[in-house]
Amino acid sequence: MNRQHILQVAGALWQRDMLRFAKERSRWLGLVSQPLLFWFLIGFGLNRVVSLPESNGNYLQFFFSGSLVMCVLFTTLFGAISLIEDAQSGFLRAILASPAPRLGIAAGKIAGLVTLVLAQLAILLLFVPLAGLSFTALNWGILALSAVLGSTALAGLNLGAALLINSVQGYHAIMGLILFPLWIVSGAMFPLPSEGIMAFLAILNPMTHIASLFRFALIDPPTASQLWSHLTPLMLQAVVCVYFTTLMTRNRKARHV
């Protein structure tokens, strides 16, 4: 496999996403408004009635980290829908019919989405003072690492699924039936139980780890073991999801070009 070609393809597809982002700024930045609205309505609404004995923060602060997870989910999800649009417009067909290494295609698409997620998280973080948090108190290292790993995992998962599903309507169904419920039970909206089936399933859900890591960075500084208990599975999930997208680009070639 030609490493230089992989990087070149990834770079080209990343550049293309950035060019499109520059031309469709309002479409992508509009995605920030939904988590903000959720945070504002649910966070302020429940802040007075919900107490979190195991957390340093109040519900408004707790749910701020959950809103950041929602931003990661929505951006990667709409990125997947734009991939389906690429398939319908023929752009994807030309890319898949090219000699481009599949890993380069997957990496380029994922890198584009990760960049968009980071840009949107940066905008959302401007609202940190509204949640009663200080910029200097945040753990920026954990925040950046979990944002990159989390968006890589969700971008890989969404893009791979989009290559498999091939229909915008089908993808909306996936969003409503699987991804949005997974966000709700990730610990983004309420603390998860530490035992039982839900706790076990939560380990498999990348959003659980993103939500926990965001919370560590914002309000609950972790111990080393707490940090690694979420960082390790998220790293593994990121690798698996990149592989999943790469595999789907290979399968896609034979099925749909």
Partner: peptide, 21 residues
């Protein structure tokens, strides 16, 4: 045609050229 309709012809050619190595 397989080009990205949101991008210019030049941007498309640049991207596809890179994809082709």
């Amino acid at each position: 045609p397989c080009l990205d309709k949101k991008l210019t012809v030049l941007e498309n050619l640049l991207i596809f050229g890179k994809v082709w190595g």
